[in-house]
Design a protein around this nucleic acid. Sequence first.
RNA 1: GCCGGAGUGGCGGAAUUGGUAGACGCGCCAGACUUAGGAUCUGGUUGGGAAACUAGUGCAGGUUCGAGUCCUGUCUCCGGUACCA
Length: 940
Amino acid sequence: MSSSEQRKAFPFSEFEPKWQAAWEAKNAFHTPNPGEAGFDASKPKFYVLDMFPYPSGTGLHVGHPEGYTATDIIGRYKRMSGFNVLHPMGWDAFGLPAEQYAIKTGQHPRATSEKNIEGFRGQLKRLGFAYDWDREVNTTDPGYFKWTQWIFLKLYDSYVNDQGKARPVSELEAQGLGRDEIDARRLAYVSEAPVNWCPGLGTVLANEEVVDGKSEVGGFPVERRPMRQWMLRITAFAQRLIDELDGLDWPEGIRLLQRNWIGRSEGAEVKFAMAGRDDTITVFTTRPDTLFGATYMVIAPEHPLVNEITTAEQREAVETYKKQVGSKSDLERTELAKEKTGVFTGAFAINPVNEQKIPIWIADYVMMGYGTGAIMAVPAHDERDWEFATKFHLPIREVVAAAPRLGGEGSAVCEMEPAECFSEEGFAVNSGFLNGLATAEAKKQITAWLQERGLGKGMTNYKLRDWLFSRQRYWGEPFPIVWEGGQHRALPDSELPLVPPDLEDFRPTGTPEPPLSKATDWVRYSETATRELNTMPHWAGSCWYYLRYCDAQNKDRFVSEEAEKYWMGGGKPGGVDLYVGGTEHAVLHLLYARFWHKVLFDLGYVSTPEPFQRLVNQGLILGEVDYYAFTPALGSVAGFVSSEFVTDIEDQAHSLVGVDRRTGEKVLGVALKGKDDDVEKKGEFFYIKDSAIRVEAKSFKMSKSRGNVVNPDDVVKGYGADSLRLYEMFMGPLEQVKPWTAMGVVGQFRFLARVWRLVMEENDDGKWTISTALQDAPANKKVTKELHKTIKKVGEDIEKLSFNTAISQMMECNNAFTQSEVKPAGAIVTFLTVLSPFAPHLAEELYAIIGAKFPHLVKPGFVADQPWPAYDPAALIEDEVEIVFQVNGKLRDRATVPLNATKEEIEKIALSSPRVQEFMEGKPVKKIVVVPGKLVNIVV
RNA sequence: GCCGGAGUGGCGGAAUUGGUAGACGCGCCAGACUUAGGAUCUGGUUGGGAAACUAGUGCAGGUUCGAGUCCUGUCUCCGGUACCA
């Protein structure tokens, strides 16, 4: 390899670290708070926030810099445009993966976290992000989690009043409520309810952390068991969490996701008397209008009434069924959901509208956790009930029809069982006094009817459950709670932070007993009191970190009032101005944080009801496209075995066959990794060149097992941070899912190299020197126009987060410079200023180089500190414009006309065009449409 | 099943209010400079056709002087979610 091959197209590896060090030395991106030196109160604020990373051992992946680069560009741009910009970074370092990694490596989680943070911080700094590192937060730092614990105590010390607002429980004390009554209303409370216990992880999990009956982390099975746990009363905020989404500038999809997760449904509760018993069973239904069609009732197997009502004859069957259901994990319960199961209890309820005796069954398709754990089954109008009734031969009674059936005798009565389930709205039939009513009206009337008789009432239910807030883990915030005489109480603020004890062995105990129980000295709080042993879930720290950034060093308060008011309250409409992160947090972090924020708002600690005004989700970056052999015989992709593991690949009857090197087995369908060259498109399919083997092109999520993970460090090493930043922004719209291409990075690298050569040239010794073509001369008209177009478009595109189009405009501008004989230094300085938010290192370097030769063309300081240039509208105006001539809507000719040409003049030019005349074929003109500056369409 | 999003060259993607479809980049082709080129520069690059021309934004219709963009129907893909009564 010759030396010229090794030499970089531009020396990014020298100047990138140089400028990173220079920014750091000058603390260039420090943002002063109100009251601090250097704070300029005349500027508006802009708070741009990234979802802070969980610092894993594997370091950044290319997904991180995507969102981070976007916010960095905006932050730098806003800064240059005269805003006080808050753009911080920190670490979400508590949590299960950290602890599991620590257990695996035998180190203390604090040590591994510190190391991982070190790694992440270094990687981010090498990408040149303009963070204010003075505001760095770390959720595992006692100086931080002191305030997480403090906020928990605020929740503990609050209840929700009749107006739905969080208020201190001292108000309840003043009303003379007793201890138990107060405890029952706290926003943080202790519950014995069944929880998601995960033996594999040795902890309980929130509903949100359980996916398909398995733990979200690790994929271990999760079972239900009753345990004493801390809960947060998020359900008290369900309606506000729905309503207050409306004012937010969030993607519609995310708002919908939250609404669905909270799952509001309106309906009614109906009380059913039971045959031969005095008590009643209450059901929840969204279709009270179908009450006449309730032909049986189903209650959850865990329902407390099951034992009481079951008859002697049915007891054995019921017990067997309950046992069967109980042994099933949630996973099995959903997997086996294909077939309905259930058992008759032997008991009967009385349908209040028609006094009919209806059988009460138990079945696991009714959940104890939702509504009342009991339903009235209306098989004619509910798919699930229909399925169940059909299987167990229960009566099906039609009470809703698509069209009203009125008038004449027998109009309402048709006891024939319907042929299929009709679950839509319609008109009541076979329903006594409801007959003929549309569903909505029928609902109203039956609800009123029930209410008058004390048999029921209108009711709104939510799917959202209270947030299970305790974990049996070591690596989390300890609860600032002590127990004495079976009762809990808060630690005083003066004892915060409550730091977890040092443990030699911090592994889960394997039982529901938390690992903190091993620290016997620590556990003993006093002669008679012991500490709470659970820790908080890792979501706790991320619920308020955006507030801490506003005043990260504050030792006396979680955030000073002044700083909170300025960064979160200031501006319109307040809160974080832009929050960028992945969709994976749509219902977890983003719901929890909103909940905490509302509590803090009600209590007067923050100045806005919502924390994040504008939310943008960056799309996932997928791995490079792989081609997979397609086997016509099987009619589908034959298997995904990467070619690197396969030998002896051959084509057998249009199927790729090979031998898996690891197992020695024959495999079909061999992946041809990333080789575009070997593939060609014929018709709508791809084939391996010169063969009949069909392949499928597909990108997959990056994963270690698939071996398609791109490491940003490698990209930085090969092409520089600026190339990586630019490429990630150029790939496509920020919010879109898009595959990585190694060659795409090269494209951006070449663009930057061309910018470099605008200013620099190689001398005979192969050294870079400032170009002789670079002169202090005005730019020609074409270049000037392109430059001002670029200033305008890039600014507008940044505001729209349309970074890909901003970059293409800068490429066009650069091409205009390249084509110009003389390189106008002043114009290039302006261009570098516009480029600097995207490629800050290169911009600084060239800015400094030009400044050294032409000091009067630059201002002192970093290019990052320069004001965003203003564009000159006059430079954009053209004297002449090209007009397109169409005949019957088809493009036939074009001509350049003066900008101020009148409609009549343009029409005349168009009609005189020989090409236009040719296509008019001598026919008379029916109509002429003139769009000034664009086109003329002649209709004949 | 339900909800959300998207279908444009070989690929990623552009295209204000309906107004020149394919900007910009990748890849590819040709040329220049070169001992060399996987460096750099210049030109070309939607398909068909020698060309004039013609077809063309998933598919089928519709509105309009004019449709990638609006309307109706339909198909496919991606993401989320699922006994929530």
